[in-house]
Amino acid sequence: MLPASQQPRRRIVGATERLTGMGSEKDDQHLEHSSAGNACRSLTVRGRTFRTGSLVLGGLALAGCSSMVAPKPTDPEALAEYQEANDKYEPLNRKMYDLSVTVDKYTTRPVAKAYVWAVPVPVRKSLGNMVQTMNEPVVFFNDVGAGKPRRAGDAFVRWCINMVAGVGGFIDVAKYAGYPHHDNDGGLTLATWGIASGPYLFLPMMGPSTFRDGIGYGLDQGLSPWNYVPRGYGLLTFNWAYNIMGVINTRANHLDDLDQVQRDALDPYATIRSAYQQQRKAMAEAIKNDHRATVPDWYN
């Protein structure tokens, strides 16, 4: 559980990661994959490769556009701010931010507003629970990779309870059984291994990231069992539908937060950048410092 002082920052991060469905599934989770039949299989490939393609294109742009690299200040005070921001590609990142905000304004945001108007809160909450449950395997594998067996055990129990007693994850029964949700992903696991984040990036249609988190996202796609669902039985259709609904539902949950950032922040881009980097650092530290005993409470 995050301290109260970190809750507004987390809401900003969650909101900005969902501009037009972008986001590292940090708390709401890798929603861009799947399909049904041959035509939908093509959509699946595009869905899975969209973020990877954006990362590749972003990397090429960074490599080929020296004008997009912010010059390193010589003034000591300015240099300290430059290093704290960790944003050497700020000129390009700001362009990508403006593009994403514009696209969101005319696409995902109107859909999310209509969704809020048409779908009751309990239904939206249930859909959010389902998306969260579907991502628990990714959390489990990352907990294992981070060397945190107790956290991994909690994630596994959450998935089992919610898939059975929670009717496929629509009801978060595990939370009431003493197993609240916790976050983990590939970028955070790499952070626990001591891998530096690399420069901050704002990727088009995906939102805040870093070189490390981009690599972590690719790892998460390999860890998600839903990317290996066989054809038939309607499972691919369900997977595709839940991904789309997850993007819309998550964006709807952050309508007011993101509007407030855009309205009140003197520099929304810098506010988002600071919130993202501080939140990711805090999440990685929380995982590193989780030294709970492996045996769960119910065993005693």
Rank of each mutant, 00 (worst) to 15 (best):
P3N: 15
S5Y: 00
E17C: 11
T20S: 12
G21A: 05
S34K: 03
C40Q: 07
G47N: 00
L55H: 06
G59E: 13
A61D: 10
S66A: 13
V69A: 10
A70D: 12
P73D: 07
T74Q: 15
K88F: 02
L92E: 04
K95W: 14
D98T: 12
A112Q: 08
V119R: 03
P120D: 10
V121N: 10
K125D: 15
N129Y: 09
V131G: 08
P137F: 06
V139R: 04
F140C: 06
N142E: 01
G147K: 08
G153I: 03
G153L: 11
D154K: 14
F156N: 10
V157K: 12
W159H: 08
D172C: 04
V173I: 15
A174I: 05
G178W: 01
P180T: 11
H181M: 11
T189K: 00
P199D: 06
P199Y: 13
F211V: 12
N227H: 07
G232C: 09
I244V: 14
V247R: 01
T250S: 11
T250Y: 03
T250G: 13
D256C: 03
D259N: 13
D264T: 07
A265F: 05
L266V: 06
L266P: 10
Q277E: 12
R280E: 11
A284Q: 10
A293N: 14
T294W: 13
P296G: 09
